[in-house]
Design a protein around this nucleic acid. Structure first.
Length: 374
DNA sequence: AAGACGGGGGT
DNA sequence: ACCCCAGTCTT
């Protein structure tokens, strides 16, 4: 339980617990009147709520909506997801990012089928043990779907709490999670935990935004320490991360008798389970053309001749950026012997859309189709 | 405790 | 160009 006399517990010290009830009422009242209509609101299906929460990790609501609709249509219940091919699951996840979410959700569905006959667990320990279910997902699903008194802590909640209570702990510091969790637990409305959790997150998304928050419209402003002191812009406190490295890649689209060579990335790690055109880092003092030839030999065992330069694409990941030169090549000799990729396939250009590809590959796909058709 | 893990949207 | 997002897993 929170120590209300503790100076570091985030501002409760300056108040008595009496303010909590009116603050709760203000938040839930605001949520009832202002909440957005979203596809996963209004369903009571725990599996649908679970799916939405997974997609919403590190991903904004507007991005998720269309993916959610397609996913639920394809896999309306746990059994449908558990029975699906992982490639079908990844195809529906294509472009959403953080593909381990899809792989873990698929594994979790199989586990729930095997252990619970397809019923989403309403017991904390087993649900939390499932792949892809961490403290946030567990709290969100248990509170929203089952009414359990579990407080969620996500980016929105941390920002809202940091401002209301002037919490100095950095929101991206691993050691400060417990402070926000305890604060959220204390504030949580036990009468309707699911709605209260969503109220705080919705407030963070619509009013208590990262930049240019709408304090005059905020139902919590009269209890907000940062607003009172004019320091809303100083919260939340964040540790700055160093700039990310930039890599130069060469990618080779190899054609052989009208078919193109694609390779499957290993199941784990970056873009795991997605298909791509072979590529890799260009070494120092190496021309992109030489790198393209070398990379194809090393990773697929085949020899090629470079037919033409297609284009250059740039793409940013979370922890590095890439610039890639893309070449169209002709198979010259050799049988495919993979070193790195899990599988390979020769496919006709019109079949490419059946396979999940990373965004970086999609960036040159239209130009590729244009060039190949000539 | 720190780093890996995508991609889009806002400023 | 930089920041942020309904975080989790691995080391």
């Amino acid at each position: 339980m929170l120590d209300f006399s503790d100076k570091d517990s985030g501002g409760f010290c300056k108040r008595t617990p009496e303010f909590i009830q009116p603050l709760r009422r203000a938040l839930t009242g605001w949520y009832t009147a202002n909440r957005r209509t979203l596809p996963w609101r209004g369903t009571r299906d725990p599996y649908h709520i679970w799916a939405s929460e997974i997609m919403l990790q590190q991903t904004q609501v507007n991005t998720v909506i269309a993916y959610y609709e397609r996913f639920i249509r394809a896999f309306p219940d746990i059994r449908a997801l558990a029975d699906a091919d992982i490639q079908a699951v990844l195809k529906l996840w294509e472009g959403l990012g953080y593909y381990s979410r899809a792989r873990n959700f698929h594994k979790a569905a199989k586990l729930v089928m095997a252990r619970r006959g397809g019923a989403v667990p309403d017991d904390w320990d087993f649900f939390l043990s499932l792949p892809g279910v961490g403290d946030y997902i567990a709290s969100a699903v248990q509170s929203i779907a089952f009414g359990k008194p579990e407080a969620v802590v996500d980016g929105n909640v941390k920002r809202v709490l940091a401002r209301i209570f002037e919490i100095h702990a950095p929101v991206n510091g691993a050691s400060s999670y417990d402070i926000f969790k305890e604060t959220a637990r204390t504030l949580l409305d036990p009468l309707d935990p699911g709605s209260f959790n969503q109220a705080v997150m919705e407030l963070g998304a619509l009013i208590c935004r990262p930049r240019s928050p709408l304090c005059p419209d905020c139902p919590a402003s009269q209890w907000c320490l940062a607003s009172a002191s004019g320091r809303v812009a100083d919260f939340p406190v964040k540790i700055k991360k160093p700039p990310v490295p930039h890599h130069h890649l060469a990618i080779g689209v190899v054609e052989k008798k009208g078919k193109l060579l694609i390779v499957l990335r290993p199941e784990t790690g970056l873009l795991g389970g997605l298909w791509e055109f072979p590529g890799g880092r260009i070494n120092p003092d190496e021309t992109p053309e030489a790198a393209c030839f070398r990379i194809l030999t090393e990773s697929t065992g085949i020899h090629v001749s470079i037919r033409s330069y297609l284009t250059c694409i740039r793409h940013a990941y979370t922890h590095f950026k890439i610039t890639a030169d893309v070449y169209i090549c002709d198979w010259a000799s050799g049988r495919v012997r993979l070193n790195g990729p899990a599988r390979h396939l020769w496919v006709t250009p019109d079949a490419l859309h059946h396979y999940p590809f990373p965004k970086s590959n999609h960036k040159f796909m239209p130009q590729l189709m244009e060039a190949i058709s000539k």
